[in-house]
Structure formats: C-alpha cells, structure tokens
Simulated scan of single mutants.
Amino acid sequence: MFVDILFLSKMPQTLSSDEHTKAREAIMIHVRKVVPKALIVAVITGLYMFFQVFGEIQDTGPTLFQILLGIKATLGLWLGLRGVNQVFFGIQPWVFTSHLFPFTLVVIIILLSQFMYL
C-alpha cells in the first residue's frame, strides 16, 4: 500500500490497465523480498538498543524517555512478530489483516522517536 501511494499512484495515468498490473507486480516482487528481512534486522537491532539504552528505573518511576522507549519497543515487537510469522511460517495475521495498521504503527514509532528527546 505504501509503495502504491508514493510510486505507483501515477502509473495508471500513463499505462494501460494491463501494463499497470504487470509493472506493479514487478515492483512488489522486489519489495516482498527486501522488506521482511529489513524488518527482522530492525527488530533485532531494536532489541539490542532497548537493553543497552533503557537503563535503571529510579525510585521516582520511569522517565518520559523510558516510557516512550517501552511503547516503541512494544509496537516494534508486535510488528516484528507479525513479520516473522508471515515470512518464515506463512501465518497470516488474524487481526488487523490490512497493511494500513502496521504502516500506522511505523508512523507512530517515528513520531515517538521525535518526542523522546524533548
């Protein structure tokens, strides 16, 4: 869906319906090969960073940074587990089967990253 929005939205204007379908599938073949592996690398490096950066929780409670990092880690782990299940085990998601929800989580993770250092 994200690829459609950015790159493929203007193709129907210049290509026939059949050409558009073929071009879209050619691009999506490469996207399907790269994205899952990149997602797994992101999750593994995220876990490493989480354990390196989180730090100790003080007596006063977790800091804003720690709270936001925990939220980001939870969302990232959900995305990672979803990706691993789909790619390696062929298990399709039971809930939130659309690509819109994972894309929304990625946007939320990016926004949380911006607020972490305020």
Rank of each mutant, 00 (worst) to 15 (best):
L6F: 11
T104S: 08
H99R: 12
L81Y: 14
G46H: 07
T21N: 04
L15C: 05
Y117G: 14
G70T: 15
V31I: 14
Y48K: 00
K72C: 04
S17D: 09
Q92C: 03
I108G: 07
Q92K: 05
F89Y: 12
V41W: 03
I67Y: 15
L15W: 05
F89L: 14
S113A: 00
F103I: 05
F115A: 11
T45Y: 08
S16N: 06
F89P: 01
F101I: 00
V34A: 04
L79Y: 05
L69M: 13
F51C: 01
P12M: 05
H20T: 02
L105A: 06
G80K: 10
Q58F: 00
N85D: 11
F50S: 11
Q86Y: 13
V41P: 02
I29Y: 14
A38G: 14
F2D: 00
W78F: 05
A42R: 02
L118V: 14
H30L: 13
M28L: 13
T45W: 05
I27C: 11
F103W: 03
S113V: 00
V87R: 12
F2P: 02
R32I: 11
I44E: 03
I67V: 15
P93T: 07
I29M: 10
I91H: 11
Q58L: 04
N85F: 14
Q86G: 11
V31A: 11
Q58M: 08
L79I: 09
I57L: 01
V95Y: 06
K33S: 06
L64H: 05
I91G: 07
F88C: 01
G83D: 03
G61Y: 15
L112N: 01
I27F: 08
K72G: 06
M11W: 15
G70F: 12
K33A: 07
V95C: 03
L69P: 02
F115Y: 15
F89I: 06
Q52G: 00
V41R: 00
T104A: 08
L69N: 10
T97D: 02
R24D: 00
T21R: 05
A26Y: 01
G90Q: 07
F89M: 11
L105H: 02
I91M: 12
Y117V: 14
V87L: 10
P102E: 00
L75Q: 05
S16H: 06
D4P: 01
I57S: 02
L47W: 08
V43Q: 12
F7A: 13
W94R: 09
L111G: 06
G90D: 06
L111E: 07
T97A: 04
M11A: 13
A26D: 01
Q66C: 09
F51D: 00
L75P: 10
G61A: 15
K22E: 12
T60A: 13
G76K: 03
F7E: 12
L112I: 09
I67D: 13
G61Q: 15
A73F: 15
L68K: 00
V41N: 03
A38D: 01
L105S: 08
L47A: 03
M28K: 09
E56L: 13
Q52A: 07
Q66Y: 11
K22S: 10
P93M: 07
V84H: 01
V84I: 07
S9Q: 12
E19V: 02
D18K: 07
Y117L: 14
K72P: 00
V35P: 01
P12E: 06
F50P: 06
